[in-house]
Design a protein around this nucleic acid. Sequence first.
DNA 1: TTGAAAGCGCTAACAG
DNA 2: CTGTTAGCGCTTTCAA
Lengths: 321, 321
Amino acid sequence: MATRAGVSEISVSRVMRNAPNISDALRRKVTDAANALSYTPNRLAGALKSQSSNLVAVVLPSMSNAVFPAVLDGIESVLDEQGLNAVLGLSGYDPDREVRVIRELLSWSPKGIILTGVHHGEAVRGMIAQMDVPVVQIMDIEGDPIGSMVGVSHSHAAIAAADHLHARGYRRIGYIGAWNERPERSLARRLAFEQQLQHHGTPLVAAHILEDRSSARIGAAATIALLTEHPEIDCIFYANDDLALGGLFYALSAGLDVPRELGLMGFNGLDIGKATPIPLSSIETPRFQMGAKAADLLLRSRTEGPQTVDLGFRVFDGGTT
Amino acid sequence: MATRAGVSEISVSRVMRNAPNISDALRRKVTDAANALSYTPNRLAGALKSQSSNLVAVVLPSMSNAVFPAVLDGIESVLDEQGLNAVLGLSGYDPDREVRVIRELLSWSPKGIILTGVHHGEAVRGMIAQMDVPVVQIMDIEGDPIGSMVGVSHSHAAIAAADHLHARGYRRIGYIGAWNERPERSLARRLAFEQQLQHHGTPLVAAHILEDRSSARIGAAATIALLTEHPEIDCIFYANDDLALGGLFYALSAGLDVPRELGLMGFNGLDIGKATPIPLSSIETPRFQMGAKAADLLLRSRTEGPQTVDLGFRVFDGGTT
DNA sequence: TTGAAAGCGCTAACAG
DNA sequence: CTGTTAGCGCTTTCAA
């Protein structure tokens, strides 16, 4: 390639990387040769030498929760514009697998790593410290971070939900969760929610926690079960919109009068919930933005150091409360 | 690291890669030292030397269509178990950007590359030929593939949809698409659908193609528009479930008698459509399996060569037809 | 079964 | 503005 262009290897390297102080003549020669040979640089070699890789490691639990695709879109939107690539790892909500995945991804000497949640043990902290790689943890902003954090306060969100439901006049409120309250932030939400209801003098009537992963189907089934067991319940707060949509669909089929007879509130504010016959009340979280901001912080972290960014949430007052 | 274990560099390498013919004593020494130093191998160097990288490039259009997260989950399920990592690129349905992304990903010398769709020009074919990297194209099985293909026949699926609706007695059928019929496979579906309706002697009444991307919200709006313009329509086939759900939600709100007064059929068979008050009729596509099979084919391609795998679809007869 | 030497393709550091 | 030199951390090849 260098010989083809009739210049030195390093000049090729400089042109390919848009280094400064390159004459137009040289640039022309190299670009022409590159096109003629459809030359693809080997970033493996470049990264090895320069000790920094244009790869960003991204560790998410799974793609099957609609939250994470949106986060990933946000991450990619920033990485793409900076010419970086994401190496992806999925933990499947399994801490051991997460450790393994992180180890694998770190072996590519990424420019930074984005992790989900704030609950990471010594194994992870050790690896990251050793590699001296910038970290951003997303989703949560409460906890002991490794580096930066970008997310929302789940306890505040739960309190806002409790306040909203109380303001709407609901007094006999139930809760439905799934997946045994994994991840921990959903547990944190329920606890804060219960506490705030207590504070209002209208303690939670019952919490129904399923073993299965969230889906509209099991949300519907759980709603039926909860209402059968506790017919006095006048409102249900769900761990997420998938469950809540199941509840809403059940209520619509059963001809319940929503929101008078039964109030329903989800979490995340997915688009689909805005299009249902009665829009689903929910807590909107900035998922895309969370990913974008995380990538952004990662790139700034060399100069600006670790930060914690609260992206906030919004109570979306649909028609179900 | 090698000195710490008191052995040669190459022995460390062999142990780390589980090479054959290693004595237990050596293996012990190396593993102990590795744990003591929490040694992370540098795959950049390994891949550079061995010319093969344990990375698999994955190019998808976007995460905001629920199809692709499921595909990605499928891909990851296989890669994870083989100790491979995915480098992800999103094209945003933009061919130019796709070329750029593919070039970037190829520069990591991936073990293989997974592309979405079968419409790739000479630029892409050239790069791939030059790198001599195995390719699997997903989603479609009709077209001129670069390497392997894994997907479903969109024309057959459309024909099956037309047959189903005809068998259900619908005679004045409309169609709603979005995003100007990107990607091309959705256009292929509509054309095959129209042709089959023609074949049945009940030509399509009207097709309403939106500019915006699919969502339940615009699906509802388009449904209203289409029915206003063509009140005689008794059934609508949608380009995907997002649009169809919007139509269903509108019909439920408006008190239309589904499926008698209006039939609705989507495409993809998303879970959410199975939980709606009336389950949404749709064409189920094997999304997770498509990703898994694609990754699988990539790994086998060295030995078995390119293949085309038709994963098939299923007409899901919900309550909306 | 283990080791020594060489070099993958690039880029940092320094010269010119 | 361009080139020379050296070496990133591994693994291939060959030898012991």
